[in-house]
Structures are given as structure tokens and as C-alpha cells.
């Protein structure tokens, strides 16, 4: 079953214990585009993002109801393999979190856990994944060196390479630049725009300018509600909802 949307959330509710973190959220994500989720801290935007690869299930008290469709198929379905889902829907975290392994081992990690043992093929994918994030020229001479010795920006690029290596369809990025300086942020944003040619990208950001710069569509969340969702330009220039207007114009709170 195909659908014009890559991901659809339908009547999505999420509780942490008794706390209602996501309230009846409906969201449609277009393929091969960047969609941003913005909102103040604690509004549920990261929780929202973590629904799409079911990372919230690492927390035992979480209950989810409603549907999330990936290519029209319910990701909570009984036939869905979690490992396979997370391969299709990759995630980049707020703080670069390369493993304490070598640069090459970080990139090949995903390949290894998904059963690729062919060395030549692995090396090829490691190189192409590092090229895809513009990291190859910086690290080609230190592939065997520790990943933790790289700069913060390089580490975040490495984390993106690591996800790209397993050929995902969707990239979830949870404030991927908040631990980076402005120049590194610009580089990562350029990288996102480039990657959006191939991947469906969802980015959570507390930086409104970032959403305005990179995203074609933007969702604004507040206290677990999806307040407004639409083309980025509409959200920033003619928001329909008063709360959106207050937030994007800086009057919030």
C-alpha cells in the first residue's frame, strides 16, 4: 500500500506513567523533504520524534496509543521487527555519541549488527558513508584512530555517517546542532539539505532560525499538542494560531 506521505501519525497519544505527553497528534511527513518540529522545552517534540523509531519503548512506563504509518504500514504492527524498523528509520542525537571505537568501526557498526560480514563491501560502504557527510577527507588517514578524538562537528558527522551506512529511509534528528558552534551548525545544516535529496528528514530543534533555514514544513508543538503544522513559510510569516504567532515572534512565556 503506497501513500503520498512517508510517515503519518494518526491520533497519537503518549503517556509517561500518568503524564500525558502527546495529545491526539496528527502529522503527515512528506518524503524526501525536511520537516521541522519546533516548540519550547518540554513540549513533547523529542518524544514525538522518538515515536517514529519506537525509542520511547526503552522507558518502561511509556504507553502509546494511536497509529504511526510508515509507507502506509503501521509500525506498531505485530509483524514489524523493531531492529528492521530502526534500520529504516535512523536517528541522530543531540550530543554526538560515537561509540568508543575507531572511526571505521563506528561507521561499520550498523552493517555488522545487520549481518554484513563481507570486508570489501564493508570498506566500500564506510567510505561512501563518510563521503556522504563530507567527512572522508578529514578522516581517511585516521580511520583506525579513536572516534572520540574527533572534534564535536566531526563526531556529529560521524554519527550521521553511521546512520547513513545502513541505508535508512528516514533520518530523525534530535536537536543535532545544539552541542555545536555556529559554524559547525551551518555545516550540518548544509549537510541536511543535501541529504534531503535522498532521505526523509525530521528534525527537532529549539532554534527557530534553523527550522526557517532548512525545513520545507514545520510543526509547532506546545504542551503535548500539535498546535499548527504547514509549510514553513506559513508558520513563520502568517501563522493561523495565536500561540504559534506568539512563539515565532518571541512573545512566548
Amino acid at each position: 500500500m503506497s501513500s503520498e506521505f512517508k510517515i503519518e501519525a494518526k491520533a497519537l497519544n503518549l503517556h509517561y506513567g500518568s503524564f500525558h505527553a502527546l495529545k491526539d497528534v496528527n502529522l503527515q511527513i512528506k518524503p524526501k523533504a525536511i520537516t521541522a518540529i519546533i516548540g519550547p522545552s518540554g513540549c513533547g517534540k523529542s518524544t514525538m520524534l522518538r515515536c517514529f523509531n519506537r525509542m520511547n519503548e526503552l522507558i518502561k512506563t511509556v504507553r502509546v496509543s494511536g497509529q504511526i504509518l510508515l509507507d502506509g504500514e503501521n509500525i506498531h504492527g505485530s509483524t514489524v521487527e523493531l531492529t528492521h524498523l530502526r534500520r529504516r528509520v535512523g536517528m541522530v542525537f543531540q550530543r554526538p555519541n560515537p561509540f568508543p571505537l575507531s572511526v571505521a568501526e563506528n561507521v561499520s557498526y550498523g552493517l555488522k549488527v545487520h549481518g554484513l560480514t563481507n570486508r570489501a563491501e564493508t570498506e566500500e560502504i564506510v567510505e561512501s558513508s563518510l563521503r556522504a557527510t563530507n567527512l572522508w577527507d578529514d578522516v581517511k588517514d585516521k580511520l583506525a584512530g579513536p572516534a572520540l578524538a574527533l572534534s564535536a562537528e566531526q563526531q556529529q558527522r560521524l554519527c550521521i555517517s553511521r546512520v547513513v551506512a545502513v541505508k535508512p529511509e528516514v533520518l530523525l534528528m534530535d536537536e543535532p546542532c545544539s552541542a555545536l558552534d555556529p559554524i559547525a551548525t551551518r555545516h550540518i545544516e548544509e549537510l541536511m539539505s543535501y541529504l534531503a535529496e535522498q532521505y526523509t528528514i525530521l528534525i527537532v530543534t529549539h532554534n527557530m532560525q534553523q527550522a526557517a533555514r532548512v525545513a520545507s514544513e514545520t510543526a509547532f508543538m506546545l504542551l503535548g499538542d500539535l498546535v499548527e503544522f504547514g509549510p514553513t513559510i506559513n508558520i513563520f510569516e502568517k501563522p493561523k494560531d495565536k500561540r504559534t504567532e506568539d512563539y515565532v515572534s518571541g512573545h512566548y512565556g
Binding site: 523509531n53 526503552l58 534500520r87 542525537f93 561509540f99 557498526y109 549488527v113 553511521r162 546512520v163
Partner: peptide
């Protein structure tokens, strides 16, 4: 914990994450 999350998010099983990342770290 970010190592664990990073590994799980790549589609690794808990056991793979344990012996390939946690034990190494």
C-alpha cells in the same frame, strides 16, 4: 547511556549492544 541509545537506534539488538558497545566501553 547515549552509547546504548545510539546502538539500539541503529537497529542493534540488546545483546549486540551489550557485547559490541557496552562491554567494550
Amino acid at each position: 547511556r547515549s552509547y546504548w541509545e545510539g546502538s539500539i537506534a541503529l537497529g542493534a539488538t540488546e545483546w549486540q549492544s551489550t557485547h559490541m558497545v557496552m562491554l567494550k566501553a
